[in-house]
Design a binder for these strands. Structure first.
Lengths: 232, 232
DNA sequence: CGACTACTTGATGTTTATCAAAGCAAGTGG
DNA sequence: CCACTTGCTTTGATAAACATCAAGTAGTCG
């Protein structure tokens, strides 16, 4: 039942395009929903029935082949938008990686609201253009980079995206600890590798003193320059 | 000097969102430009200074690593939109694959025009969402498919996109001839493979009777079902 | 404590890249 | 019109990277 006034992503999500009256209307058509790790919000191939904003947590977007191979095609973080407005079927599933909280809208309600609020559509357009750029950069990684370059790139990307918003400029060179929101298998599914290859690259980076692995879900970047050099 | 009234993509490009008065204004800020194969319209890393609509021909969007590896991240066809509105630097180059004709706009002029015409932004949003879906589907191919699946998928995709608009529903099963707008190397750059691997897959498909290769730049699909089965 | 799951490590195999050479179509100049 | 160059493509031999198969280890939860 959270209301938008107290929403932690109010000023970063697409809602920032709206004044407080408009947010009130949007609030009336949306509702908050909590997800546990592994719980899906949207399934691949379903009609697009809902869209959402991420309030807390990390979720994955993924597709797979019929014979069970999986590819994670995106990771979404607080303030990111989820789902496919304006018709069509969803081409990828959306599943929580951590405990997560999202603000869900019925898609047709959201579509109608968006069409009446060009400023909201404009924000959504900018966001979608950014996401397309990011996705295309990732294609270079998938198509042309080696396993070691992939893993190094992943660590840098996740470090950047997991950084608390508001302290973007910090930690330019120094050490940094990351709580991974993903398992080794999920890292493999992001990078188009197997779990064994990811594991071997992690231990190699640790042996080389580039990172440390205090626990399974933690990574400390000890030498960011070396990591950047490996990322290609 | 072409005018929008006679534009062959007038009703398919984003301009379809505009009435004839508005198109007149847009016409005034845009100009037509012709490109030869290999000629670039936009370079990776440049500030985004122009956007465009494709009128004729096929162009590639590509990025590369510093050491020269290339990945084609998209192919654009008539009526498609090119470039990065609303700021930022371009993350990929745009280069003609065939003789091409585009309708070019100064980016800031286009941005300003778009912000005054929500219907145009809406069209652009839908287009961008579609492109994002297509790009994410391609990530599955890059990350998880084998060389034979990649080549088969490529042939089906290009067959679909090269089909003359207006006869989409035709050729469901029968034979089909395609004039490839790309070299073997460029196919390799789309699929994240080497030219040799692409070549070997082509000859294998020909040997198996799935396709025929009348010339370097032509492919005939003899058995679409078999190709679809190979695409995974 | 024991079972379970996730991860790591090792041995081997397959796929695809790399290196090298030859074929082929199109164009050029004699 | 023909030899010759040129650029792309095909084909072949070999090598490297990564996947697969198979144990083994270490946290975690009952």
């Amino acid at each position: 039942m959270g209301s938008c006034e107290t929403c932690v992503v109010r000023n970063r999500a697409i809602c920032a395009a709206l004044d407080s009256d408009e947010v009130g209307v949007l609030n009336a058509i949306g509702r908050s929903r909590v997800l546990a790790p592994g719980e899906s919000l949207i399934w691949e191939g379903d009609d697009s029935v809902l869209v959402a904003n991420v309030i807390e947590g990390v979720l994955k977007l993924s597709t797979g082949t019929e014979d069970g191979r999986e590819q994670i095609v995106g990771m979404v973080f607080p303030s990111d938008f989820i789902g496919r407005p304006f018709g069509g079927t969803t081409t990828h599933g959306v599943t929580a990686l951590t405990d997560a909280k999202v603000c869900v809208f019925n898609r047709s309600d959201f579509d109608a609201f968006a069409r009446q609020h060009p400023a909201l559509e404009h924000k959504l357009l900018r966001r979608t253009l950014n996401e397309l750029d990011r996705t295309r950069r990732w294609m270079l990684l998938l198509g042309r980079k080696s396993a070691s370059e992939k893993v190094a790139s992943f660590l840098l990307e996740i470090a950047e995206r997991m950084a608390t918003p508001g302290c973007e400029e910090l930690q330019p060179q120094g050490e940094m600890r990351i709580d991974l929101p993903v398992s080794r298998q999920q890292i493999a599914d992001v990078l188009g590798l197997t779990i064994e290859t990811v594991s071997r690259q992690f231990t190699r980076l640790k042996t080389d003193g580039v990172i440390d692995l205090p626990s399974r879900r933690e990574v400390a970047i000890l030498n960011r320059a070396a990591l950047a050099a490996e990322a290609g």
